[in-house]
């Protein structure tokens, strides 16, 4: 199950709306081993495409260096589909290489050429992709998530 706070959930949806009709992409990093998505990092889609996304190779190196320095891992890897459902495509599966990550798919397919209109829903789904096998998981949105500033005093469960 993916447990994510409301602010981060909203930020992912907002990014997908903003980049529509191109695909939006990014990461939510968290402390290694915590499974807590804490640090929202929107990335540039270097492909700037409605059908493909790709982190720029220099951005990718900086992102991983930064996460390494903070002992973080990519807890969530997200991207949007702007004309199709929020499920990993064959291409998504072939590239997926973080077996520990939650792959979040957001679909803005109801939005047509404009986004932000009343009633344009956004699908938000989460998957594990391990060795090419996809399994969907539940998403729990928690209203406020006390992020790990003082982890020894915060009890999550």
């Amino acid at each position: 199950m993916l447990r994510i706070d409301r602010a981060t959930y909203d930020a992912i949806v907002a990014h997908a709306r903003e980049d529509h009709p191109d695909e939006a992409c990014g990461v939510v990093a968290g402390p290694e081993g915590s499974d807590r998505p804490e640090r929202f990092i929107p990335m540039l889609n270097a492909a700037r495409s409605p059908t493909f996304y790709e982190f720029d190779s220099g951005d990718l190196l900086r992102l991983y260096r930064d996460m390494d320095a903070r002992d973080e891992v990519p807890v969530v890897v997200y991207h949007s589909h702007t004309a199709t459902e929020a499920r990993p495509s064959r291409t998504d599966i072939s590239y997926a290489s973080e077996p520990e990550a939650h792959y979040v798919l957001v679909s803005t397919r109801e939005h047509g050429t404009r986004t932000g209109l009343a009633g344009d829903t956004v699908e938000f789904r989460s998957f594990r992709i391990v060795d090419g096998e996809v399994s969907e998981e539940d998403v729990e949105v928690v209203e406020s998530y006390l992020f790990g500033h003082s982890p020894t005093t915060v009890v999550y469960d």
């Binding site: 695909e23 493909f52 199709t84």
Partner: peptide
């Protein structure tokens, strides 16, 4: 030397 998996995909 750093090896990183590309982060990419598409619909």
């Amino acid at each position: 030397v750093t090896i990183l998996p590309a982060v990419a995909g598409g619909c």
